[in-house]
Structures are given as C-alpha cells and as structure tokens.
C-alpha cells in the first residue's frame, strides 16, 4: 500500500491559496542498480491532479527525474478557508491514491 500524501493549504493575505504537498513515492528511475548489480526497475509517479471542490487547479506529469517523494508548492485563487482539496496521483505500475486536505 502506498503512503498517504501530505498536503497543507493555506489562504494567504494576497488572496491566493498556497498548497504545499508531498507525495510519498520511491520514484525509482530505472537506472539504479541494487547491491547485487541488478537494475531496479523504473517505478515512479506519472501523473497527478489537485482539485478544489471538484475543479482542477493543477495537474502534471512526471518523468524519471523528479526527486524521491515529490514535493511541490503552487498557488491558486478562488479558495476559501474550510474548502476541501483532493490530490490524486498514479504511478507507472497503475497504482494510485487520493488524499484530501482542508484549506486553513
């Protein structure tokens, strides 16, 4: 099972919501060798999407060179305190998960 993502969203004085998120994932790039010298197969997040009350506020795709446990900060407008955000990701094995956060 994958680990729940961390997401923190705060309404800032500038009128935007700043979202900080951490998606727990090994992000194996498929080029690393293990101790026995065998290649560790690629295993990484390929897509993610953040939605605010059902509307997409950011989506993206990753290759193999995003750091382990991808970390991302972004800002959007139109959010209010108490609104729910959801973060979805999927990896190249087809595993996926959705986690929620509330704007504070």
């Amino acid at each position: 099972m994958s680990t729940p993502s961390k997401m923190r969203a705060s309404l800032k004085d500038g009128g935007y919501v700043e979202v900080r998120m951490l998606m727990y994932h090994e992000m194996e790039n498929g080029r690393r060798k293990d101790e026995a010298g065998n290649i560790v197969p690629a295993w990484h997040i390929t897509e993610f999407r953040v939605q605010h009350l059902g509307r997409t506020v950011l989506e993206g795709q990753f290759g193999t060179s995003v750091s382990k446990n991808p970390y991302l900060v972004f800002r959007f407008r139109g959010g209010n305190k108490g609104d729910k955000l959801s973060l979805w990701w999927q990896d190249n094995r087809g595993d996926s998960r959705v986690d929620d956060a509330v704007i504070d």
Binding site: R55, L58, E59, G60, F62, P70, V73
Partner: peptide, 30 residues
C-alpha cells in the same frame, strides 16, 4: 527540463485559469 540528464523532460504541469504561475519543486540532475 535538464539538458544533460539521460532524458530531458523532468516534469510538465498544466495550469488552469485561476492558478498562479508559481511552482516550486525538487528535481534530479545527473
């Protein structure tokens, strides 16, 4: 992108209207 990684493109983001042009993240560089 990074121009000496084994593959060039690292991440690609789509920003709908209402999302500020601001992104902060962490990448791998060979």
């Amino acid at each position: 992108l990074a121009d000496r990684n084994p593959t060039m493109l690292i991440a690609h983001y789509t920003l709908p209207k209402g999302t500020d042009p601001y992104l902060s993240t962490r990448i791998r560089m060979a």
